[in-house]
Design a protein around this nucleic acid. Sequence first.
DNA 1: TAGATTGTTAATCGATTAACAATC
DNA 2: TAGATTGTTAATCGATTAACAATC
Lengths: 223, 223
Amino acid sequence: MPETGVDGRTSPTPLRVPEPTVERLSTYLQFLYSAAASGLTTISSAHVESATAVSAAQFRKDLSYFGEFGKPGVGYVISELQGRISRILQLHETQPVILIGLGNLGAALLSYPGLTEQRFEVVAAFDIDPKKCGRTVQGVPVYALSDLLTECARLNPRIAILAVPGLAAQQTFDLAYQTGIRAILNFAPAVLKVPAGVTVRNVSFTQELAVLSYHIKTDQLDS
Amino acid sequence: MPETGVDGRTSPTPLRVPEPTVERLSTYLQFLYSAAASGLTTISSAHVESATAVSAAQFRKDLSYFGEFGKPGVGYVISELQGRISRILQLHETQPVILIGLGNLGAALLSYPGLTEQRFEVVAAFDIDPKKCGRTVQGVPVYALSDLLTECARLNPRIAILAVPGLAAQQTFDLAYQTGIRAILNFAPAVLKVPAGVTVRNVSFTQELAVLSYHIKTDQLDS
DNA sequence: TAGATTGTTAATCGATTAACAATC
DNA sequence: TAGATTGTTAATCGATTAACAATC
């Protein structure tokens, strides 16, 4: 049921998009790059199914939340689909991102080439340790945490990568929120309390390993 | 409906456990550590709800897949619950893990203290670059990729962290599979094809950022 | 045209939530 | 005992899958 606006007309894309769908869009983009690299100009939902873990029906259903993308009997033009998915994910223009916490993990992220490839630009890094500040790492200027407000006023980022210790995570987020940050990639082992309108994605290596650990125990029994 | 074994008796825990439940077990464990650290000896499902993003009903339901853990009217004894969840996740004893790919990310993972804290021990690292091999990084011996079979025969790991380039991911997995690896924490931007009985968890920073990017675009509209 | 493949609707599946009898 | 809180069942919700008319 499409929502009806105040003017009585039905608006075009107001269906709530399931979170798993948004996650898969990124997978599709990755697949499209490799398909293009292998010389194809067109793909079908069946291609997607055979190259990814996503079914053809799921792929079509996911795209349907955003409009029509293909031609019956033909499939999808790769370059067009790339462009439209990029736009949906707001990846068609470079996104400024800040990094908070320049420990081992934070430093490794700065040298990760994938970020730039996907149009994310780390425009500033912050650390509480004064010894780390005032220089540049991988071309990214490092500031004291106390400069967060000033620098964010200038750079106006919406996304922050949080790579601080668990105990510092909440207070660091609270500070970042004041500067206008509304999305957090959280590497800290902590559950953040955030106001409505803020999106958090947690990355926990130990959680992932725990799930693997559970499965190697359990799955051996059946085989 | 509990499964019935060949002897006709019903076996105790044969209900399939939903994947989200397994993921949350790790969250509960993290919460229990901090609850214990704050001096508590007992918690209730209501405590869990107020400290995590998980509802009280969800918490009780999750635990119910594995038996009974609490006392009505009282709650759960923290130390006991920790022990039992640790055991379910096979985290009560140290798990050997190997790391394949010693680039920036791989090296950062080796210096990440969280792994040891959760009883994962990286027992060997492997890289295709001979210049990186034959030494020790963070106390972990680094071998040539060609030594994978030999070393794994000795160390007998089941879990591998895959931190290699996307194009090398599949062939590296295939090799690791031969050595007995049955669980993969995959950092490579690639969809792995794996035999039945193998568990893969994908970690993709750019995918996470893409999801955040989508939300900062979309969620601003409602507020 | 015949074959292929889309976008969408309806059916299925599975996970989350609510409610409550049991019990400490 | 009265109050609190569990474990479980039933109801709800939402996502995935299957099927197919539309169409290139």
